[in-house]
Computed example of a mutant assay.
Amino acid sequence: MPEFSVPFEPAKVEKNTIRKFYNIGGFTALFQFAGSNIFAMLLMIGITAILRAVNPDASTGAVSHYMTKGAIFVAINMLTFLTANVLFAFIGLKWAKIKPSSLIKTRDYHFSDAVTHCLAGLFIWVTAAYISSGIEDIVSQYGFTTDVMDDDYGKTGLGLAIMTIYTCFIAPVTEELFFRGALMKIFSKSNQRFGIVASAVFFGLAHGNLPQFMLAFLIGVFMGHIDMKHNSIIPSVVVHIFINTMVTVMSEFNDNEVVMGLISLGLIIMGIIGFVLLLVFRKGCRLPVSTPAQSRRGIAIAKTSIGIILAFSVQLIYLVLLILTTKK
């Protein structure tokens, strides 16, 4: 309003208030990271103990092989992140005094928007996938690998069913609830652009390897953008489900050259359409632009937030250690 103005430099009281929310977001991300790892470890220990008790003659290697090659490890992964994402999303929202219902009050969102976002998101995913492959090639030249997951785990009927349900439905909903819902909402208190980028950074770090970080970060910025536009996590949930489903379908036909050729052709066509739609979308709706005053309330304060510094440092160190300790 004409009679009001925002000072370029925030006063001490305002800085402390903004820093409080950045700390809430940072510690929420840190607790989710620590909680998911602790919960997974406890589940692994508990289930291993049960299997050893039921099969006292089985060796440690046999028990481990049974867990990783069957459905157990996949189920642990699903339960871990389902619990951690939902639990800490609601803890963070409660801590920041944000109503969960505010995450789904969708504004001006139609079927045509969903199609545009999905195809534009697919183009970003394809582009990011090529970048990720380049990063993997560079790292592999030094004798390391960024692939920290066994591609052959859970190759049973039940394992594939659980993995499909988790990848295509549970992960998109719970990850969007946590990253674009809780984190972005908390980080956007004074600077929307910072909220989008910061939540995308933590989304990338959560994937646990360098190529996946780049892929998740780029698509995370886009999904944060569309959620900010429509004031809801529904748009990013739809895009996330679409992309994860496409990746799951492709992974099932890796060994079929004919089918993969058709899928690749379809990806090229949809990618070109997605590129055009992305340009149209960005022309009509750019990322939120920070005013000079808002810029002084974004990264300038965030870099003094203990919560953000700890969460970022711990997850970055974890990612680096995984690469350094995983040889080809």
Score class of each variant (00 low, 15 high):
71 A>R: 05
261 G>C: 12
129 A>M: 13
58 A>G: 13
128 A>Y: 04
120 A>V: 05
237 V>C: 00
192 Q>H: 14
186 I>F: 06
70 G>S: 11
234 I>P: 00
72 I>D: 06
56 P>N: 08
312 F>L: 15
151 D>H: 11
202 F>G: 00
234 I>E: 00
68 T>V: 13
95 W>D: 03
305 S>K: 12
272 I>A: 13
224 G>P: 02
313 S>N: 08
78 M>F: 07
295 S>D: 11
319 L>G: 04
146 T>P: 07
302 A>M: 11
198 A>V: 04
129 A>E: 14
296 R>G: 06
277 L>F: 15
92 G>H: 09
229 K>C: 01
287 L>H: 05
301 I>L: 15
4 F>W: 09
237 V>A: 02
54 V>C: 07
120 A>C: 10
134 G>A: 08
40 A>E: 04
232 S>A: 05
250 M>H: 07
117 H>D: 13
90 F>H: 06
10 P>C: 06
132 S>H: 09
100 P>R: 06
150 D>T: 12
67 M>K: 08
296 R>P: 06
221 V>K: 03
97 K>A: 13
235 P>F: 01
303 K>F: 09
185 K>F: 04
231 N>F: 03
59 S>P: 10
323 I>L: 15
202 F>L: 00
232 S>T: 04
209 N>V: 10
204 G>R: 01
287 L>W: 05
247 V>N: 11
268 I>T: 15
155 K>M: 11
225 H>M: 09
65 H>C: 04
221 V>Y: 01
175 E>K: 00
